[in-house]
Simulated assay, not measured.
Amino acid sequence: MAQRQGTQIMYYPYLRGKQFELLAIKELADVMRESKSVHPVIEPVRDVDSSNTLLRNMAVLAQKRVPSTVIINPQVGEIKGTNKSEQLLATLRPILDVNPQMKIGIILSNDEELVKLTHILNHQDRQFKVDLFYGSSNIQNECMNNLSKSCDVDIHFAEDKYVTRRYRSTFPTRRTALLRDSFARQIRNQDYFTLGESIFSEDHLFFREDNYVGFGDFQTIGSQFNEGGALPRVVAIHLTYQRPNEEAIYIRHFCSTPNGSSADTAGKYFEALTKLVTFVDENRLDNSAIATFRSHLTNRSYAGLGVIKKLSIQNHIYVALGAENND
């Protein structure tokens, strides 16, 4: 990404702490470190008592000095709410202590959670740097004032910066980043089959005009949380890209042909993959994620649906970086 007027512009991919989403950013740690422009946000969804996946992957980002934010009051998944917030903070503490570029995040969900989180932060032996994530909730001013005294708020994340205006006198910083869900999720994978090319996002073009310090999205997954489940009747690969001489980011969905059956997922993948590889070859698109897709087709290798999601995320991060560089 480019640097304008002495200000580092950041791209904020928002991910859930599932295995392949964490692997996506872990494997791109060197790319993100070199760019100095990618700041992943992770909302953990797995219980830290039963899995060390979060800590293991975040440790790699810390080692590479990749800036990141981990939310301590997830709103989806196994540790939703504040019941595990204190334990989550304690688990992350060794990384937070050695990596000054890592922050904690708080979703402004409701007053009760904010009171609990403020209590937890007040009983720490240091003041943490915190990013706030705004939704549709209306938090009382008293809760926000108390929170502001308990931590060092760095960035306000919101789809509309005007939702932060009522609190702007509460916090020393007014830095706001745009966070938007640009993925038009369909109910079933087969619903993507008839969709053609569409614009995914133009936020990278206009966020500066609205005085945002950066832009973020939910990649090609969307903000809706899904635990996963049955085998799909249609395999869909979501690919973002830029067309030559155009600044917008576009998206296409490469799908296997609906046949009413959930059998032969690997065969469905290769059918969708053949369409994707034909498209990227015709349009001369390339990065490490696309190269891996190509190798899957060449070697007829299928590693599972999680790997498809991982590669789609990685491709999108490359596209976001390229879009900013071309801006």
Rank of each mutant, 00 (worst) to 15 (best):
L285G: 00
F270S: 12
E282Y: 06
F270Q: 12
L273C: 13
L285F: 00
N283Q: 02
F279K: 00
S261L: 10
I290E: 02
S261V: 13
L273N: 14
E282K: 02
N287E: 01
A272I: 11
D281P: 00
S261W: 01
T278W: 01
R284V: 04
L276K: 04
T274S: 14
V280H: 06
K268C: 15
K275V: 09
L285N: 03
Y269I: 11
K268S: 14
L273Q: 11
Y269A: 13
P258T: 12
T265Q: 14
G267H: 11
T278L: 05
E271I: 14
T274M: 06
G267P: 03
G267R: 11
S262T: 15
F279D: 08
D281R: 10
F270Y: 13
R284F: 09
E271V: 11
A289L: 11
N287K: 09
Y269T: 12
T278N: 02
A289G: 01
L285I: 07
S262M: 15
A272V: 09
L285H: 02
A289H: 07
A272K: 02
S261C: 08
G267V: 15
S261M: 15
P258I: 06
F279P: 02
L276N: 02
N283Y: 13
G260I: 13
F270H: 13
A263H: 11
S261K: 14
T274P: 00
S261A: 13
F270C: 06
R284E: 10
V280P: 07
S262W: 03
K275T: 13
L273W: 08
R284P: 00
S288A: 13
R284Q: 05
A263C: 07
A263M: 08
A272D: 10
S288F: 07
A266P: 08
K275M: 12
D264M: 13
D286P: 01
E271Y: 09
V280I: 12
K275F: 07
K268E: 11
T278F: 06
F270R: 13
K268Y: 08
D286K: 04
T265Y: 01
F270T: 10
K275C: 04
Y269K: 09
K268M: 13
F270D: 10
S261H: 03
T265R: 02
L285Y: 08
E271F: 06
R284K: 03
G267C: 14
F279M: 04
I290T: 06
S262F: 04
V277D: 03
T265E: 13
A289V: 12
A289E: 02
N283C: 05
